[in-house]
Amino acid sequence: MGYTGAVGTELLNILAKDSTFHKVVLIGRRKVEFDDPVLKTWEQRIVDFDHLSKHTEDFKNFDIGFCSFGSISSKVDNQTFRKIDHDYVIESAMLAKEGGCEEYHYVSSVGANKNSMIFYLKTKGEIEESLARIRFKRLCVYRPKVLIAERNDFRIAESLSKFFLKPVIVLAPTALSIPVLDVARAMINNSKKSSIEAIEIVDNATCHQLSKEEKKN
């Protein structure tokens, strides 16, 4: 889920070249036309997120779920943001779990905290808590810092962050930022690792480390 976003797009590009996963299914609100010949062969399941109970079959028989689904908080009101980012994600995850999915990878945010005074971070923290309650055999939550990506939409806060943090990003690239490609690589590489932890919180530095593991092989 979330395959049209910055991280999701990179996830698709990596998966298209990875033979580890014998089948990839995309679940979203609309059909996307791809140029890549591999992506064209993948199944797309179009669902109505306001009526997910009608789509139980679409979430069955998956081993691993990847979710980078979310809205742009600056473009919607708080109620809509929570519905999209929390309700849609949690209801989808519950259906996936009921359908047999044992492992779930979710892109959250640095600073996620259900007790935060900042609505965005509070919502992200509540999402993490709700996902934990679903009790996947393995839940991996990624908390990247400033995402470095070429976006079609202009986000002034993110752009200003990149401008003011540019010297730090250059001198200490793992400290305050991470390319979306590296977040995607971290998710894929981590999904191939075994773990005894039921819930893993993957911080920005660990995302950088995980993203490099495949390059060493």
Results as ranks from 00 to 15, higher is better:
Ser116Met: 00
Cys140Glu: 08
Val146Glu: 03
Met117Thr: 15
Ser161Asp: 14
Phe163His: 04
Cys101Asn: 08
Ser109Glu: 00
Pro144Arg: 08
Arg143Val: 02
Arg135Ser: 11
Thr123Cys: 05
Ala157Thr: 12
Lys97Asn: 12
Phe163Val: 09
Val146Ser: 00
Glu158Phe: 03
Leu165Pro: 04
Tyr106Arg: 03
Val168Thr: 06
Arg151Glu: 14
Lys124Glu: 02
Glu103Val: 07
Glu98Gln: 13
Ala96Met: 12
Leu95Lys: 06
Cys101Gly: 10
Leu171Gly: 06
Pro167Cys: 13
Leu147Val: 04
Gly125Pro: 05
Val141Asn: 06
Val168Leu: 12
Leu147Asn: 04
Lys166Phe: 14
Leu139Asn: 02
Arg135Glu: 09
Ile148Asp: 07
Ala96Trp: 01
Cys101Ser: 09
Lys137Cys: 08
Glu129Met: 07
Ile148Tyr: 07
Met117Ile: 15
Ala157Phe: 10
Cys140Gly: 11
Lys145Arg: 13
Glu98Ser: 11
His105Trp: 10
Lys114Glu: 09
Leu95His: 03
Glu129Lys: 14
Tyr142Phe: 05
Met117His: 12
Phe154His: 14
Ala112Ser: 06
Lys122Cys: 15
Phe136Val: 08
Glu98Gly: 08
Tyr120His: 01
Val168Trp: 01
Glu158Ile: 00
Tyr106Gln: 07
Ser130Tyr: 03
Lys97Thr: 12
Leu131Gln: 05
Glu126Trp: 00
Ala93Ser: 07
Ala93Ile: 00
Glu103Ile: 01
Gly125Met: 08
Ser108Met: 07
Glu158Asn: 01
Arg133Ala: 14
Glu126Ile: 00
Leu160Glu: 01
Phe163Pro: 10
Lys145Asn: 15
Val110Cys: 06
Glu126Thr: 04
Met117Asp: 13
Asn115Leu: 03
Phe163Asp: 06
Arg135Phe: 04
Tyr120Ser: 00
Lys145His: 09
Ala112Gln: 02
Glu150Phe: 05
Ser116Gln: 00
Val110Ile: 12
Cys140Tyr: 10
Lys162Ser: 05
Lys145Cys: 07
Tyr106Ser: 04
Asn115Thr: 08
Ala149Met: 15
Tyr106Phe: 15
Ala93Gly: 02
Ile118Asn: 12
Asp153Gly: 12
Ser108Leu: 05
Lys145Met: 10
Lys166Thr: 08
Ser159Trp: 13
Ala93Cys: 04
Leu165Met: 09
Lys137Gly: 11
Ser161Thr: 14
Leu165Ser: 03
Tyr106Lys: 03
Lys97Tyr: 11
Leu171Asp: 08
Gly111Leu: 02
Phe163Glu: 08
Ile134Thr: 09
Asn113Trp: 04
Arg133Tyr: 13
Lys124Pro: 00
